[in-house]
Nucleic acid binder design. Structure first.
Length: 459
RNA sequence: GGAGAGGUGGCCGAGUGGUCGAAGGCAGCGGUCUUGAAAACCGCCAGGGUGCAAGCCCUCGAGGGUUCGAAUCCCUCCCUCUCCGCCA
């Protein structure tokens, strides 16, 4: 346990994770507040409809009522048992003792029975309420992937006075990428970075990190593996058919899909000081994704791969601060991508494309000259406000200074740099007629050169 | 991986199956004294959940077991420390 900063209580297995203490109503994996299900039913149904998710709010409400009822019963049964045990401390004659023991046994059985009922009710609620997505910000445009709202475009799509190549062609030609070796050694959609691409990869990390440090983020290099409970707490499904997450076969661990998982897990089951908020965390990790169900989707080269490195932002705020922080994360992302001299657009993601935990999500899409016919914008980063949806499962709270009450925090995450896609965008936008690639000014100090390609030192 | 020792409140640290949610110390908070401070002395002080509140429930690393009753006994797991082995 650290003596300074926020407490980390039982990080290994957060208390009450699997089986919440009978005195607690909150911590199942239902990630909406189960107590608000009935009151906000309209809103929840609206959210499901807008997201295109089928969910049965009514049965979740009924299920919560069951849990609450069983919980009350258990509370009473425990109280009776405690009273009985106190009475047993006094001296009793043999007959009285025998009666006392028999009664105790009956009380114990009653408690066990109610506990079993409660466990069943909880599991039921977990399944039903866990299927419900977060609320949706009122300004989020309604619709699917194509129905985003364009907030702004910065820069003009790059034009070339020569035949532009896509990053794959460039990468192979310039000795920067090797997908064939990746496939041979590991599998499809794994790759080697070589020569200047390696320097570019490291430069991007450091460039982004320096900006984040300047913005007040505490840099972390996180584990690349996490426990399934933490993965689930963030809202990823660690197992199952269409999971995006790899699991190890000889350990109860998952390869992380993003440092959002490990940074989010950092304060699981903690109660933070209000003064420490907002907590701004920067995390570098490798990211592993199965990309199940993504077969054939715009999957050329580096755009969709099974492994990449990412610098991630993760912020924990008070509820009233999360929307402003969301704008702030977006501003930082724009600063980072603007510095790479890339044309980009910012979009407000539509309801159907949000993902269950997000209340609102902004994406930055960089211009990718080699994408599709004649180029198109492609996602390079995204910033989400997940409000208290993740915090509820992770049990990350803070203590209000004035009321001394504990409340769930809001959690936000955003990409600082996803290296595979950033490299793709840099290569394609900064390519020259001779196939070499110009290094954006902001990266030159980190690269130690202004050009990538054969003939430049270290290629 | 092997052998051993441990995990108790913000920290340190006692704890005999019932009188223990838990001694003592430190820190913290409030007070007396003081021009002010220090020292000394007195008092308060684990956390979580629920509730307007009184209260009630839960928690001694986690899970399970024995028992009328477990911080205390048994099993499993996790974590920490020391030594050995292996290793970047």
């Amino acid at each position: 346990m650290s003596s300074d900063g926020p407490r980390l209580v039982g990080l290994a297995r957060p208390k009450g994770w699997r089986c919440a203490g009978p005195g607690e109503l909150l911590p199942f994996s239902a990630m909406l507040d189960p107590r608000c299900l009935a009151d906000r039913r309209q809103e929840i149904e609206e959210s499901c409809r807008k997201r295109g998710i089928k969910a049965d709010v009514a049965s979740a409400v009924a299920s919560y009522e069951q849990v609450a009822a069983r919980q009350t019963e258990l509370n009473d049964a425990n109280r009776r048992r405690n009273e009985h045990q106190k009475a047993g401390k006094q001296k009793l004659d043999d007959e009285q003792r025998a009666a006392h023991t028999a009664e105790g046994r009956a009380l114990k059985e009653a408690v066990a029975r109610i506990e079993a009922d409660l466990a069943v009710a909880r599991a039921d609620l977990e399944e039903r309420a866990g299927a419900l997505p977060n609320f949706i910000h009122p300004d989020v445009p309604e619709g699917g992937e194509e129905d985003f709202r364009l907030l702004r475009r910065v820069g003009e799509p790059t034009t070339f006075d020569f035949e532009a190549r896509d990053h794959l062609e460039l990468g192979i030609q310039q000795g920067l990428l090797d997908f064939e070796a990746g496939a041979r050694v590991t599998g499809n959609k794994f790759y080697y970075l070589k020569n200047g691409a390696v320097l570019l990869e490291l430069a991007l990390q450091r460039y982004a990190l320096d900006i984040l440090i300047e913005e007040g983020f505490v840099p972390h290099i996180t584990p690349d593996l996490a426990r399934p409970e933490i993965v689930a707490g963030i809202g990823y499904n660690p197992r199952g058919e269409e999971t995006q997450i790899y699991s190890l076969s000889n350990a109860d661990l998952c390869l992380v899909g993003t440092a959002e998982i490990t940074l989010g897990g950092l304060h699981a089951d903690a109660i933070l000081d209000e003064d420490d908020l907002p907590l701004k965390l920067a995390g570098i990790s490798h990211c592993f994704r199965t990309e199940a169900g993504a077969a054939g989707r715009e999957s050329k080269g580096l755009y969709r791969v099974h492994q990449f490195t990412k610098v991630e932002m993760f912020v924990i705020t008070r509820p009233e601060d999360s929307e402003a922080m969301h704008e702030n994360l977006l501003a930082i992302e724009e600063r980072i991508f603007g510095g790479l001299e890339l044309p980009y657009q910012v979009i407000d993601i539509a309801s159907g494309d949000l993902g269950a935990p997000a209340f609102r999500k902004y994406d930055i899409e960089a211009w990718m000259p080699g994408r599709g016919e004649g180029g198109s914008y492609g996602e390079v980063s995204s910033a989400s406000n997940c409000t208290d949806y993740q915090a509820r499962r992770l049990k990350t709270r803070f203590r209000r200074k004035d009321t001394k009450k504990n409340e769930l925090v809001h959690m936000l995450n955003g990409t600082a740099v996803a290296n595979s896609r950033a490299i793709l965008a840099v290569l394609e936008n900064h390519q020259r007629a001779d196939g070499t690639i110009g290094v954006p000014k902001a990266l030159q100090p980190y690269m130690g050169r202004d050009t990538i390609g054969p003939g430049t030192s270290s290629s």
